[in-house]
Design a protein around this nucleic acid. Sequence first.
DNA 1: AGCCCGTTTTGACCTAGATCAAAGATTACC
DNA 2: GGTAATCTTTGATCTAGGTCAAAACGGGCT
Lengths: 242, 242
Amino acid sequence: MTFAFNEREKCGSCPIRHRAVCARCDDDELSRLEQIKSYSTIEAGQPIIWRGDALVTFSSIVSGIASLSRTMEDGRTQVVGLLLPSDFIGRPGRAFVDFDVTAVSNVTLCQFRRKPFERLVDEVPHISQRMMEMALDELNAAREWMVLLGRKTAREKIATFLEMIVRRSAVPHHQISRYTLPLTREEIANFLGLTLETISRQLSAMKKEGLVEFEGRRNFVIKDFQALHRASGDDLEGDMGN
Amino acid sequence: MTFAFNEREKCGSCPIRHRAVCARCDDDELSRLEQIKSYSTIEAGQPIIWRGDALVTFSSIVSGIASLSRTMEDGRTQVVGLLLPSDFIGRPGRAFVDFDVTAVSNVTLCQFRRKPFERLVDEVPHISQRMMEMALDELNAAREWMVLLGRKTAREKIATFLEMIVRRSAVPHHQISRYTLPLTREEIANFLGLTLETISRQLSAMKKEGLVEFEGRRNFVIKDFQALHRASGDDLEGDMGN
DNA sequence: AGCCCGTTTTGACCTAGATCAAAGATTACC
DNA sequence: GGTAATCTTTGATCTAGGTCAAAACGGGCT
């Protein structure tokens, strides 16, 4: 699953070319980015940056999944977002990082050194426009998640989470499609504001009710998409948010 | 408290001139904004926009407080953000509104018609840069709030909320300073993911412990800032997030 | 000054989800 | 191919915060 990127790989053939911060850039702008970029890889489970670290590079996720999280002094942890390919790490204009970023699977990053990148953000409107767009999308997702965290029941939270995975893998779901949980039960719990036991019990219940079926710990099949949606607590927004 | 704005008030004397979307604009850019703006006022308690409404205008809050919220079909409500003077309403590039916006106190808006404003966003980097900055600040605040909603206890939530009010009123807190709750108990509950009864009980407990003192329902004095902070569950970030 | 109506407080009780504890599964690793 | 190290499931019990209900408080308004 890990892509092998040569140090001077061309942006033109990059898998996230049209979704990342560089999405709107023309060839000239792209070559300016090319000059300050480099690739790096992080193994599953390893930290990418810690909260409080000085921000020395920005990066785009090229492949793999990372989590953004905050851990309180006593160990309580909340995952505040999942970072997928094309998502951006780092915040122009800040000296320090606000949340821990951890590789959930093996991750390939396209990194930019801080100063030159910040200069580009100021000079190239296509970059700041795209970053604004991405920030607003994430803001919306974060707020949607706040509703989940503040008001949904355990069942609704988990149904919403499963639905999110289905929607993201975006394979126009035929009758039988197999999906994969990207996270352990504990990570799911930290994402949903629950405990791992509650996740496990709730998934078992959904199995028993014939809503999902599991093959191994991480692969599942949705047996009843409608019921899943009904369980999510969301109204039938035909994708309102567009 | 409500400001009286004449329809053609100059931006130069605007109280939010240096914090709103227009913060980075020069005089030329400001006059372009001036041409497409108009003021409007909304009474406390009235809706400003509903989720699902077509987005016809963007606006900046000039004075007053509004809330951003989502209500589920069965009435459960989560407030996902408070909008204070200089905060922005609306999202360029979207046709519909994603959350309900409601005036919590009397509100004055500086409104821009959609199309011309979107053109400005594309043409004037000072605007898109500022909007990105604001979006990123809100994103950070939203994520911080996710930690509160997902992992904090009722006590910690309320302490954090009181601290937020203290920090925002930004009067360099001398021994005795009087603050005001901008929300009813029910609104606080919907903001913190609790019920109004829990808010009331927790505030009573804090009173009994000598942490806060109330004068009427909405005015309070913090008797022990340290204890308040300790109760918030946050570590002693000397304002990390900068 | 008194009255009304919405807000807030307080009490009694209940429940969803947490916590504690101990088996079962998987996977990775010699 | 066995076994250690993780994960996951399941059970028993506890509790923070929710729910339901009623009294107390404020704060306009006449």
